[in-house]
Design a protein around this nucleic acid. Sequence first.
DNA 1: CTACGAATTCAAGTCAACTTGAGGTCAAGC
DNA 2: GCTTGACCTCAAGTTGACTTGAATTCGTAG
Lengths: 139, 139
Amino acid sequence: MKILDIAEIVRQTGLPPSTLRYYEELGLIEPVGRHGLRRQYEPDTLMQLALISLGKAAGYSLEEIAGMFGGNGEPALSRPDLHARADRLEQQIRELTALKNAIRHVAECPAPSHMQCPTFQRLIRLAAKRQARQGARRA
Amino acid sequence: MKILDIAEIVRQTGLPPSTLRYYEELGLIEPVGRHGLRRQYEPDTLMQLALISLGKAAGYSLEEIAGMFGGNGEPALSRPDLHARADRLEQQIRELTALKNAIRHVAECPAPSHMQCPTFQRLIRLAAKRQARQGARRA
DNA sequence: CTACGAATTCAAGTCAACTTGAGGTCAAGC
DNA sequence: GCTTGACCTCAAGTTGACTTGAATTCGTAG
């Protein structure tokens, strides 16, 4: 069970075939061959797709993702680049954590206006620190 | 210094006026008045914009964000809804953390092919757990 | 009081990420 | 060997989030 038919990829990922073809067009994935017309993939492709999904969740564009991994899925970035991206992710994680805390706070805080609540303000300000710097790319 | 001219909002947020008008059109923000034609905002608007920015970073669409806060910026969700969203954020934070760890690992691991490296695979699989379930909405 | 710069309106354009539709082709089951 | 269902190609359409451009309007500096 070395090779997966596109139907199997569709089943396991939930992505429609059209999306897989689109990703292929962008050079994000590559079928290993065809069975008739049907694309066949290596199991690795499933992990590449997982990576793509994660990258998207992190706010990267498909083009950026394509730039990080060749069509083969092998990372193609310098060590400092990788660390820089990890640093950015850390910042983003801090922001999401603050947002999460703010939301939990709103769920519990009885204040009439949250925009005025100092705790809420502090949480948001914490989260949004350095947001002004360079629009948060795409979201 | 109670009211802010649009120019001041632009300066502090880095967002162009066109974006502010667009957000207004979607009901995300609302000027408190005009000075001539120029929109004037309350300071609260800055925090609303910070919230919008965070919401986008979390992957919410502007429409969803509009649904969470009325034009006034006051949250308009039930407590269970809020907690559900916070839960989702927590999951997302776990994913990003795993992605971050995977990236750091790639930066250090000398393996020739990361797609084959068991550590990398474990990290990604960890991150992508439950990704199949309901396409990760927009990214 | 005139000139200037920046914001305003409104329609149209752009870009990314897909999806849809028409018409075609297999491989497998009957 | 014929039908069928799912994928195929290729072009065009859609949606979300903005941006751009032309023509206009003000407040402020000079």
